[in-house]
């Protein structure tokens, strides 16, 4: 068991940079969604989610 473990997947710097960019974009999109729901709740009141189909 003293054999060294294989390093697994090692990301290149370019891959890390792209992943970071994608993560930030997802965070911004989710942030916008949260702000949108919050703003509409302020506009329409808490009954925004209690509506007839």
């Amino acid at each position: 068991m003293d054999e060294e473990q294989p390093p697994g997947i090692v990301l290149t710097e370019a891959q890390k940079k792209k992943r970071r960019e994608r993560s930030i974009a997802i965070a911004i999109a989710l942030g916008i969604l949260v702000v949108l729901f919050f703003a509409v709740t302020l506009v329409k009141g808490p009954a925004v989610l209690n509506r007839p189909l």
Binding site: I9, L11, A14, Q15, K18, R19, E21, R22, I24, A25
Partner: peptide, 12 residues
């Protein structure tokens, strides 16, 4: 081999 995405925000 595992495929690691290199897609940027611009591609999406």
């Amino acid at each position: 081999p595992p495929r690691i995405s290199e897609a940027g925000v611009g591609d999406y």
